[in-house]
Design a protein around this nucleic acid. Structure first.
Lengths: 119, 119
DNA sequence: TGGTATAGTATGAAAAAAGGTACTGTAACG
DNA sequence: CGTTACAGTACCTTTTTTCATACTATACCA
């Protein structure tokens, strides 16, 4: 935690969102349906078991995600978004939209550059 | 850049914001006044020259920040937020607010824990 | 003449994040 | 009887990010 209170708030918020896979995990869980460990794995094709576990544990620790173990064999564990986690929804939505516009902007710019290069 | 388009959008947005000092740099520049390199350094007491340079270059590359060099000696360089950079303002504002609430929430929880421990 | 301020760059080290592979136990399926 | 699915853990390596320190050139001030 930083000393500077303003930074501290950014850091606290970003820690919850940042991590190579966290936004996607939250995004999928925000769809509403609880998801099992391997369902999430299939939704995030390139994630390793290790990274999925680590990120889920962090999200759980911050009470953004809830983990429910069904004592069965083979095991069943369901992850779902918490009420508190839902409060992140507008932020993720804004990020998603801004990101889409940003990608499009870059794409257009590159297209323009290629255009002038072939002139 | 990821293949998954949804992730890609999050990544694009977060790349612009994330970095240990980026939100703070943007935050200060969003106050409106252009700032010189060393003014920013003084506002971010713990940043190294190297990190400030690197982050400013990245922000410049994404056209979120504008860099103006005044050919003087000793040198004078002014950094300011671009119009495009201003479009990040609502996101940073949301992050800032959510972060503040998150910090407060944790604080209360810890206080509660200490309370029950001494019971 | 020596110190200060400006805006950096260069180099190497340390820390943090992410990835890769192998392994666990049990049940159901074929 | 071998394979698959489940939800992980253990261990080690690689990549990325950040940090620390020294260095540059020039002008001004005392």
């Amino acid at each position: 935690m930083q000393k500077n209170p303003v930074q501290c708030q950014f850091v606290a918020a970003l820690d919850s969102i940042v991590g190579k896979w966290k936004p996607m995990i939250l995004y999928h869980l925000l769809q509403g349906e609880p998801l099992r460990f391997n369902e999430l794995r299939r939704l995030l094709p390139d994630i390793t078991q290790r990274m999925l576990t680590l990120h889920l544990r962090e999200l759980e620790e911050e009470e953004l995600v809830k983990r429910v173990i069904y004592p069965q064999i083979p095991p069943k564990v369901e992850y779902s978004i918490t009420e508190y986690g839902k409060s992140l929804s507008p932020i993720l939505e804004s990020l998603h939209q801004w990101g889409a516009a940003h990608v499009e902007r870059k794409r257009l710019k590159e297209a323009k550059n290629e255009q002038t290069e072939t002139d």
